[in-house]
């Protein structure tokens, strides 16, 4: 595998230079929307809990990560003329893929967070002026506090966000036109099909046993006086009868690993697909 850092940086710079207008427009719109969102946030929260609401809007940011991952990577492949021209870039296939990967997974997410930070300060500044006109003081956000919404997220949340970005990224390689739309409509259809099949299977289970779910569980907590701590116990029921063991599919670790490997496979698939396209 040919890999040269100088060439990679050169092509990356070129990518950002040629798409500069599009990037600026996107950044500008995102900045404006987020400024308004943060300004409205200041106004609704007011001065009572000032500082509490002043943090990045993680949901909007993540949505944006997923959207940009479906728009900007492999943008050259959408048009035949540009696709042929991209073949002539003085870089190997692996380097070109690495550039799009870096764009979708590191550069654009970081840029989005930076833009949201700027919008947060701009919105809060507008809020400060609004409150100053009423003779009230309003503090600007503390830097240590603004990432708190991301910090609250768990491992599983991060995994599904990465998964969303990976699906958009895969869609960007697979489809040529209306890439983002096709990707997410396709994903929606697949998820819906899985849901329908699951529902049919559960219906048969209901018909056969009278229970919708063959397995259910409940968690009970009690206070252990010896240790002075709460103890939580999970009991698994099989069609209403309590089991003395916990079946494997109630193990969170297993599902975590399965989902990780599934997303890794999708990432490998996007590389294989790109490789085939550029052969």
């Amino acid at each position: 595998m040919e890999f040269n850092l100088t060439r990679t940086v050169n092509v990356l710079t070129r990518k950002f230079y040629t798409n500069r207008k599009s990037f600026l427009i996107f950044a500008g719109i995102f900045f404006l929307i987020m400024s308004v969102v943060h300004y409205m946030g200041c106004r609704t929260a007011g001065i009572i809990i000032g500082g509490e609401n002043l943090r990045l809007n993680a949901v909007a940011d993540v949505l944006c990560f997923i959207i940009v991952a479906g728009i900007y990577p492999f943008a050259e492949l959408t048009e035949k003329k540009n696709a042929v021209f991209e073949l002539l870039y003085p870089a190997s296939r692996a380097e070109k893929f690495a550039i799009d990967f870096l764009t979708a997974f590191i550069i654009l997410p970081i840029s989005i967070i930076v833009i949201d930070m700027l919008a947060l300060y701009a919105g809060s500044l507008a809020g400060k002026i609004y409150f100053a006109n009423k003779g009230l003081t309003y503090s600007l956000p503390y830097f240590s506090n603004i990432f708190s919404q991301f910090a609250n997220w768990e491992y599983a949340d991060w995994m599904f966000i990465t998964g969303g970005v990976i699906i958009s990224f895969l869609g960007a390689v697979v489809f040529k036109k209306y890439r983002l739309l096709k990707t997410w409509v396709g994903t929606g259809i697949i998820l819906f099909a899985v849901f329908i099949i699951g529902a049919i299977i559960l219906y048969f289970n209901y018909k056969a046993t009278g229970y919708w779910f063959p397995y259910t569980y409940s968690t009970n907590g009690y206070f252990n006086e010896a240790t002075g701590q709460m103890v939580y116990e999970t009991a698994v029921y099989h069609n209403g009868q309590k089991l003395d063991y916990i079946p494997w599919f109630f193990n969170r670790t297993i599902w975590t690993v399965v989902v990780q490997i599934f997303f890794l496979c999708l990432l490998c698939l996007s590389w294989l697909r790109y490789k085939k396209e550029r052969a």
Binding site: V174, A193, I197, T209, R273
Partner: peptide, 29 residues
Amino acid sequence: NEIVQVILGVAVILLLMSLSLLASGIKGY
């Protein structure tokens, strides 16, 4: 086609798992 392979593969594995889960629900049958 790789994409169709992945979709079909995951679907078949999910189906096998669900069938098995369903069978475990109606024990004895």
